[in-house]
Computed example of a mutant assay.
Amino acid sequence: MNVLLRAVVISAIFSHSLYAGVYKWTDEHGRVHFSDRPVSESSTEVKIKQTPSSGSTGDSPQQRQQKMRKMLDAFEEERSEKKEAKQKAKQEREKRKKKCIYAKDRYNSHNRARGIYNYKKDGDRSYLSEAERKSHMQRLKADVDRWCK
């Protein structure tokens, strides 16, 4: 809701209601009708009792202003929370994008490699068997699927 619309709603809530006249008349078929302007000479003005809205009975201008300030503060807090959530979502998307690129690069480079190996404690290479390589590639593919949704 934009600021202007909120201001209109708030002013409507806290302002005194202005009622136009309400007129009642009966047509030739005996049906009763109501309107905001007299239709004929037989139209009679109906007096409507104004019931005070909840919370505004006897409120002083200062009390109404305090209520309006609280409402505006709540709107500001809500906007701030939405902005923060949007920023977090953007950061999460950027993080996922980076991890997706990394996962794809790793999968593609390991897929093209002739042999995949790990280093032993003594520094020598230990090449993966075909079954180990297949399992390793499945894990890399799962990473791609996880980050690149």
Rank of each mutant, 00 (worst) to 15 (best):
Q138E: 14
T26C: 06
L140E: 00
R125S: 11
S109R: 15
S15M: 07
A131H: 13
E130H: 05
D36T: 12
N118V: 06
E45H: 05
S42V: 03
H33D: 09
S11T: 06
D59Y: 02
E84T: 09
K141F: 06
A12E: 13
T44N: 01
V144F: 00
V144D: 04
Q50L: 13
K134V: 05
A113L: 04
H136I: 00
I10S: 02
D145F: 01
E132P: 02
L128A: 07
K82R: 15
D27R: 01
H29M: 05
K82A: 12
K88H: 13
M1E: 13
Q65S: 15
Y127L: 01
S80Q: 15
S17R: 10
D105R: 13
V46R: 03
Q91M: 05
V3F: 04
I116T: 11
Q138D: 11
D145R: 08
E77Q: 14
N111R: 11
Y117Q: 06
V46K: 03
K82T: 08
W147F: 11
S129E: 08
H29A: 04
Y102E: 15
V8H: 03
L140C: 04
R6W: 04
W147H: 14
A142L: 03
V9P: 00
K70S: 14
R139P: 03
K104Y: 06
Y107S: 07
S42I: 01
T57M: 06
K47R: 14
K98N: 10
E130Y: 02
R6E: 15
R146G: 00
K88R: 15
A74Y: 12
K149E: 11
H16M: 02
T57Y: 11
E45A: 13
R125M: 10
C100N: 12
T44S: 07
I13E: 12
Q65R: 10
R93G: 05
F34N: 02
R139M: 10
E28D: 12
K120S: 12
L72S: 11
Y117D: 04
A89S: 11
Q50P: 00
M71G: 08
P52F: 08
E45P: 00
I48S: 06
K83W: 09
T57S: 11
D105G: 15
K67F: 06
V39W: 07
S42D: 13
C148W: 03
E84H: 13
Q62V: 05
Q87Y: 14
G30L: 01
K99D: 15
A103C: 08
L128I: 01
R125Y: 07
A142C: 02
K82E: 15
E132A: 08
R139K: 14
N2I: 09
E77Y: 08
D105A: 15
K120I: 00
I13M: 08
R114I: 00
M137K: 06
Y119H: 12
F75R: 01
K49Q: 15
S54Q: 06
M137T: 11
K149S: 09
K141R: 14
K67E: 10
K24T: 08
S126V: 01
Y19L: 09
T57N: 06
G30W: 02
V22E: 09
F14T: 09
E76S: 13
L5Y: 11
K70H: 13
S35Y: 04
W147K: 00
P52L: 03
K104E: 14
K121W: 05
V144H: 03
K95W: 14
S60W: 05
D143M: 05
